[in-house]
Computed example of a mutant assay.
Amino acid sequence: MNAAADDVLALLRDDLRDFAGYRSARSETAAGAVWLNANEAARANAADADGSLRRYPPPQPEPLRAALAGLYGCSPERLLIGRGSDEAIDLLVRAFCRPGRDAVLVAPPVFGMYAVCARLQDARLHEVPLCERDGNFEADLDEIACVALEQAAKLVFLCSPGNPAGGVLSAADVLALAQGLSGHALVVVDEAYIEFADAPSLVASAASQANVVVLRTLSKAHALAAARIGCAIADARVVEALRRCQAPYPVPGPSAAQALAALTPPALSATGAAVAEVRSERARVAAALAHCPDVRRVYPSQANFLLARFADAAAAFERLLAAGIVVRDMRAMPQLGDALRITIGTPAQNDAALAALGRVEAAA
């Protein structure tokens, strides 16, 4: 075992290092013709067409795990499937942060679940706000490193592309940050929107850096938000530690089957075409928004949304709502008191939003 791996395991809560977790009946054995080991129903529910729902699913469905590992370019033992990225965030905080003692660091404005999970675990929360420079939001990774070391943070959450800012982080800079925090903290990079970006994923380059965790999801680019399939990609020992803290059956059978179907070559080809349309529409909508009379600034985005500042964000929000269009009101977030986040929809949906904001000729 190398020193980096030793450092990562040392970050785990000391009271969980020998924790075996719950061993379900399905995890102990799946062999045999007659299964009477899990107290499952002997007969299927009348609404269950093929009778499969009376059985508990595999804790980590291996065909799906292998397919996701192939998609993301990692070995299966480095990948843990969970209920979207949200479960991975929660597992990381619970496994590595002792309540009332350990700390989590975030860079707002950012996805709110990092702070929510920290609060639920009673972990101390420290913030290093994004800096607005040259019309974009940027993470100050040097300051993040300093604060993480000063406050003994166990987890540093980064989002790339950022939500709601839309910017991407330099892979080299993130790896340098992780190297500087080796033995002190895990650097968790949330790549929920990476399929829409020009930048590559960190998965491959992070394989040699044991304290980097990458979060991926099928919710966004693959259009499977309701299936709740996400994963954490990390050092195999970190994955095993998280698995011991996970619920016995985290992946519903129907969701796993749908995800597998979505990873076939024809489905992936269709997903690629949909992503290309989003990227094209993102550029078109950004240019049109910049000419709307109430828009002060549109931020560059590598995700499937745009963040925009308005002279009167409340009025813009209400105009959109009156047209039946719901966008995300960001005014309660730090530094975004005049901002809305607009997801890129179909061309027709985007035209409707632009028309509601006063750019009527966008539909022509």
Rank of each mutant, 00 (worst) to 15 (best):
V8G: 01
A10L: 06
D18Q: 11
A20R: 14
A20N: 02
R23I: 06
W35T: 07
L36K: 05
A42K: 04
R43T: 12
A47M: 10
A49T: 14
A49W: 15
P59R: 03
Q60D: 09
Q60M: 11
P61G: 07
G70L: 06
S75M: 10
E77M: 10
L80R: 09
A88V: 09
C97R: 04
R98C: 05
R101C: 15
V104Q: 02
P109A: 01
M113P: 08
R119P: 02
E132S: 06
F137I: 08
A139R: 03
D142P: 13
C146V: 15
A148C: 11
L149M: 12
L149H: 11
L155N: 11
F157Y: 14
A165F: 14
G166Y: 12
V168I: 07
L175T: 01
Q179V: 09
S182Y: 05
F196G: 00
A204L: 08
N211Q: 12
L215P: 03
T217Y: 10
A227W: 05
A232K: 07
D235H: 15
V238Y: 01
C245Q: 14
Y249G: 03
V251N: 01
G253Y: 05
T264Y: 12
P265M: 09
V275M: 03
A283W: 05
R284W: 09
R297E: 14
L320F: 03
L320V: 00
G324S: 01
A332D: 14
P334W: 13
Q335L: 12
Q335M: 08
L340S: 03
L340E: 10
T343R: 13
T346K: 14
G358L: 15
G358C: 07
